[in-house]
Amino acid sequence: MPAKIKVANPNRCINCYSCMLACSRTNANSVSLIDSAIDVRTSGGIESGIGIIVCRSCIDPPCARACPTGALTPRNGGGVVLDKDLCDSCRVCADACLPRAIHFDRADMPVICIHCGVCAKFCSHDVLEIRKTEVM
């Protein structure tokens, strides 16, 4: 059964970035923030709010609809799958995603969440949850 990542308790976040480091370590084999599909950042300093952006796993994803090359296609259970060979880094997908869950890495490729749940596994404060979804 496919799974999807959910920001279940955003106000519990302590801003440690362990989830982002886990995502890049696991999915990009790097130690980095920019290779992470989950995006945590403060707004107005650490004394203000912490924003956590993840792929919303849309069933009819606007990013895939906007993709002119067919590099992004809907994923079973929500979200999208990326075919890097078809991507020409036009960034239309990033603009189509309202929560801005798509950003680009140093190789100018979109970083796409695969909903593997490793970020939730390395969250010590239960901010993130992995949830099962129905196969369409």
């Binding site: 302590i14 801003n15 440690c16 970035y17 362990s18 480091l21 390395f122 010590s124 404060h125």
Partner: peptide
């Protein structure tokens, strides 16, 4: 509340 230094899951 409690917060963390970057890369510390304790907070």
């Amino acid at each position: 509340r409690k917060i963390a230094c970057s890369n510390c899951p304790i907070g």
